[in-house]
């Protein structure tokens, strides 16, 4: 552990017994590893009350982010995002489909987030877990409501053929805060997408494409997700990791776009947050979003 760990943790934890029980309070000493296992919430509380977290970060510090694009050549666009140790890969595949009768010029974008059993011992093979379902749903909602893509840009032949973009995000290592990583990978992959020129042939009711992929997507904005965790209703933790997540009393995700505007906010139940807390979180999120956008630009420039 580094110098920021409070002394009480480094020297072993004392479990206090209420003084009314015995005249001489019994005190056991436990090493920190054991204490962490049997009383994890108290373990975290001891750190946070000193303004620091078990992994050495301050409460407002985010983990390092890293993005690489273009790893998956079978996909039309791909990106890998790492947030600390949480790693996700997003691959976007474009296929052809018929548009809905009510919207003959609109294409489709189908995002899905998957937490395979590979990424963490808590996920088992089978139907998607609640966490992955809720993240998929939220990402879908953000894409739709922010009109990230103009769906008529995906039109090939009105009423007959449109592009459908399957954006599949797969987590390879889950160490907390999958939402931010997933959103980042998705946006990076979307910016990396290159579609081939497509023509619709009436004669055989088929679409044919050129081999070269040259057409990028036009994104109306660049949404960046920033998540905060709330501990004990009072401590705001930026970018909660896997150790902290199970003990949070609440979470807050804000989606900030490139000019600092707010695209979305998600606070799924949990302990209440005051207005000032919300405002300070938004400020912190804006700073973080600018930083992430810089990294994103850098990664896309390297392709």
């Amino acid at each position: 552990m580094d110098d920021s760990t409070p002394a009480s943790v480094q020297n072993g934890m004392d479990v206090d017994t209420p003084p009314s029980v015995t005249s001489t309070p019994a005190v056991f000493s436990l090493d920190s590893e054991t204490f962490k296992k049997i009383h994890p919430t108290e373990y975290h509380r001891r750190f946070l009350s000193q303004g620091v977290r078990p992994d050495g970060r301050t409460l407002s510090r985010f983990r390092k982010a890293k993005i690489t694009v273009g790893a998956i050549t079978t996909a039309h666009g791909s990106a890998m995002a790492r947030l600390g140790e949480t790693t996700v890969v997003c691959g976007i595949k474009a296929e052809i489909t018929e548009p809905k009768t009510g919207a003959p010029r609109d294409g489709f974008i189908v995002p899905n987030f998957d937490l395979p059993p590979l990424c963490s011992p808590q996920f088992k093979p089978g139907p998607p877990s609640e966490l992955s379902q809720s993240i998929s749903e939220y990402i879908n909602r953000v894409l739709e409501s922010s009109k990230l893509l103009n769906l008529s840009d995906l039109c090939i032949e009105e009423g007959r053929a449109v592009w459908v973009l399957y954006a599949d995000i797969v987590c390879l290592n889950y160490e907390g805060n999958a939402m931010d990583a997933a959103m980042l990978a998705l946006v990076a992959a979307l910016k990396h997408v290159r579609l081939p020129t497509a023509t619709f042939y009436e004669a055989d009711n088929a679409v044919r494409v050129k081999e070269q992929r040259t057409i990028p997507l036009k994104l109306s904005r660049t949404p960046i997700s920033v998540t905060f965790g709330v501990f004990d209703g009072q401590f705001i933790l930026a970018d909660p990791d896997i150790e902290e997540e199970p003990h949070l009393s609440s979470q807050l995700t804000v989606i900030i776009e490139q000019n600092g505007g707010l695209c979305g906010m998600l606070k799924p139940g949990g302990s209440a947050l005051g207005q000032e807390t919300l405002t300070s979180c938004l400020e912190a999120a804006r700073t973080r979003a600018t930083h992430i956008l810089g990294i994103l630009e850098g990664a896309l420039a390297e392709r």
């Binding site: 052809i96 018929e98 189908v110």
Partner: peptide
């Protein structure tokens, strides 16, 4: 029903001859 579903059917486009 547990995932975001797209259109029922979609195909990989053919290449220009």
């Amino acid at each position: 029903r547990k995932r975001v579903t797209g259109p029922e059917k979609s195909v990989v486009p053919l290449l220009e001859p």
